[in-house]
Amino acid sequence: MTPGTGQLPEIQGAQRRPGLRGWLLFAPLMLWLFAFVIAPTAIMFVYSFCQRDELGQVVFEFSLSNYTRVFDKTYLKIFTNSIQYAAITTVICLLVGYPVAYFIGRASEQIRNKLLMLVMIPFWTSFLIRTYAWMSILKAEGPLNGMLLYMQLIAAPLDILYTPAAVVIGLVYSYLPFMILPIYGSVEKLDNALIEAAFDLGAGPVSAFSHVIVPLTRPGIFAGVLLVFIPAIGMFAITDLMGGGRVPMIGNVIQNQFGQARDWPFGAALGMTMLLLFAACFALSMRKSDAA
């Protein structure tokens, strides 16, 4: 906004400059953002150029070595691994979540709220407890294997816990609501007349879905994909617990730098790199969706 705009005699609605009261109302958010986003990111940025001493304390000595280490093939491989896991998780969440969100969004209002409640209920218990619950379900002598053996569907217990499959199950389970809710938001606003129009104009269900419904719910899909994909890349608790600590993801590597390896500067450099990567992806996808 140029300084000149303020001198215009009458500016309507959204274009009016915020008064003192507006800034006051905005201040808590600014403080929050500064204290918990900007300041920590700045600290991380500074740390990422530092060194560690014998005990693992940060030594303020400028160096780029942390960043050169980020591009070591070990960590690049873990990066691509993590992206793979996150991508698989996102695709499954989308395939499972879209129909659920669609169904909830098209249901009558009474049923809709009950169904939304069902999606939310798991969040009432701690995420760790839910993860441990999955571990008991999947373990070799657990209820899942017990049931399958009893029904004589399998001859020997399935090997699920502590495998990559268990990691994906855990990730999909944890992030599914983050896919359902935004898509539900888009579906709920879907104009029935447009779908009927598509049918009237001779579109079959498939083409109505792909040409009308999907484009109209694209904002929800886009938000859901972001909300699932980004946190899934950084997840470390599920990979440790359900993957048996065998499948290192980038989140585990970063966590390890702040824990066992006691190399905060390197951890900070990894974190900064991830942050830049996300920012770039986000900017790119925003530009693309603007163009569309």
Binding site: T74, N81, R246, P248, N256
Partner: peptide, 8 residues
């Protein structure tokens, strides 16, 4: 870390 990443 390297070896663990390569093991999968």
């Amino acid at each position: 870390t390297d070896l663990k990443a390569a093991a999968n």
